[in-house]
Amino acid sequence: MQKITTDALVQKAVELLNNNTVSYVLGWKKGEFDYDITPYVFKDEKTLKEEFIYSDFCGVNLSKYLVAKTKELAGKILVFLKPCDTYSFNQLLTEHRFNREKVYAIGIPCEGMLDIDKIKLNLEGISSIVETKEGVKVNTLDDKTIELEKQAILLEKCKNCKSKKHYAYDELLGEEGDVLDNNRFDEVAKLESMTAEERFEFWQSQLSKCIRCNACRDACPACTCEKCVFDNPNSGIENKSPANSFEEKLFHIIRAFHVAGRCTDCGECSRACPQNIPLHLLNRKFIKDINEHYGEFQAGLEVGQRGPLVSYTTEDVEPSDVFNKGE
């Protein structure tokens, strides 16, 4: 697949700005370092040319920003969507979260995004990161250089990428890809085959790290309620320190349950978590269960899909029979 360059995207964005197709460009902006890239709304050619970037660190899914930005801004917004972002885009439209008329979507190819945390495990004091054919070349402040293979430093969500195909766009740049075979349920199956004690230990050790920063909720394109139970000081689950009690499990079960059947498995929750908690394993459990008991379902394939938890059949499995797996 031919790689799409920052220049090509900037050129396209400038063209659409100048011919008044759009008034704003929602994209990724360079940061102080090669890896700290932030979502940004560009308004003019100059900033686009100087600060827009599309690199291996553009993991952020921009679709959720459309919810706020389409309300805030008067004109049409150009948004760049990687294949997995298009699922979220559709899901948001299904839930009537933004006005499609106000958006011009361009699908762009993606070859997998990198996880800076994984790079930092290898060395400290990074001065620059240069993309190479096989991965990256990392230079440090004390003039060391190491090369890292891409596969080892991919974001969790990209390791098991489900699709290189775009499901929503007005225009596509680069070549279209395919839905991929992936092993995204392997880890869930592994956990399922453990004993209840082992599973409890696993989740206890993971979830007790949670600092309740709500980043997972905030990053999630399926979490768009304006009033959230987790903001309610009387909810009894507003604890902020890492604790070994049920409180954080309650938070995580509710978070995952609330997006069950709507979660597109975009992986933003795990990417955003500062404590590296594998939240995708909670969401994938729901997805796996739904697939097994109610038929294959992928959220975000098209606008207007009816979710599995807001429908039923009279033949549905009884809750007690769902357990009869694993042990």
């Binding site: 956990l191 399922e192 209840a196 004690e197 082992e198 599973r199 409890f200 230990e201 696993f202 989740w203 206890q204 499990k249 079960i253 995952a256 349950f257 069950a260 909670l282 459990k285 729901f286 269960d289 739904i290 008991h293 109610y294 599995p308 938890l309 807001v310 039923y312 059949t313 009279t314 549905d316 499995v317 009884e318 809750p319 769902v322 357990f323």
Partner: peptide, 21 residues
């Protein structure tokens, strides 16, 4: 019918977290 789906999913998740079924 809705409750059946919801509780099937919720209880399965509790089981996944290691809570006695």
């Amino acid at each position: 019918y809705y409750a059946r789906r919801r509780m099937a999913m919720l209880f399965s998740m509790l089981d996944y977290l290691g809570i006695e079924r």
